[in-house]
């Protein structure tokens, strides 16, 4: 093999799997774009501890199959490598984020202001419930193409699952540095995150089915629902 001289850092920077380089005190020396996003959901010390725990006994690298879940991030394996006493690298292998079960003809989908659908569903929810509700959203979010009817149904069902909660916090934001492939095109992701102090789980299967139908990735936990919506603009 011929030796080449090139800067490989670029490929690591834009890799979909997080890569973090720590020094021997746990301080971050380098992290790629997706790892920056990951640190929104997990602490630096926790990942450093994992790196130390799964490090090879001697210089070199070691890959371990391990299921890790940090909110919307799911990993199936990790590699820890070091060549000196000063630096240790951790690479986490992302599970495929979305597995579209249905081909979407994006051209048939109308351009939609997600904030309008969100507000209409909040209005509907408030008609039947008196829960305290807070909304944090980006009002300047551009329009995107989505199945308006199914997405509205998804929101109605999701909100209804929080009907017994004292207070509900909703946030809608564009996720930086994360993408999904729809029709061979890389699309941004918008995340709708709903958190409360109580949730009915009886509609979870239905919520997952509607989400899957419109290729929205859905992460349901005891008191939270996170919807990752493909942000198709063209």
């Amino acid at each position: 093999m011929n030796s080449v001289s090139t800067n490989f850092k670029f490929f690591i920077e834009y890799d979909n799997s997080p890569f973090i380089l720590f020094n021997n005190t746990g301080k971050i020396i380098y992290l790629n774009t997706v790892a920056e996003v990951l640190f929104g959901y997990v602490g630096q010390q926790e990942l450093y501890d994992i790196a130390i725990s799964y490090a090879p006994k001697d210089f070199g690298d070691k890959t371990t199959r391990l299921e890790l879940q940090y909110d919307i991030f799911s990993f199936y394996a990790l590699t820890v490598a070091y060549e000196n006493e000063e630096e240790i690298g951790l690479r986490l292998y992302s599970k495929p984020r979305l597995d579209p079960r249905r081909d979407i003809d994006t051209n048939k989908l109308p351009l939609t202001d997600l904030n309008i659908i969100l507000e209409a569903n909040i209005t509907l929810f408030k008609l039947q419930n008196e829960n305290k509700l807070t909304l944090l959203t980006d009002q300047d979010l551009p329009q995107c193409r989505i199945d308006q009817n199914s997405f509205s149904k998804l929101l109605r069902k999701t909100f209804e699952s929080f009907r017994s909660s004292d207070s509900i916090n909703i946030s809608l934001k564009l996720v930086v540095g994360e993408y999904v492939i729809i029709q061979n095109k890389q699309e941004h992701i918008v995340q709708l995150f709903i958190a409360a102090n109580g949730r009915h789980a009886n509609s979870d299967e239905e919520i997952e089915a509607i989400a899957s139908y419109i290729n929205v990735s859905c992460t349901i936990k005891e008191f939270t629902v996170s919807l990752q919506i493909p942000f198709i603009q063209k």
Binding site: P110, T123, L124, L127, Q148
Partner: peptide
Amino acid sequence: QTIIKGFNLTKSLFVS
């Protein structure tokens, strides 16, 4: 009034 608000918000949308 709340029902009216809901319908007005979805007036431009293709929803049932």
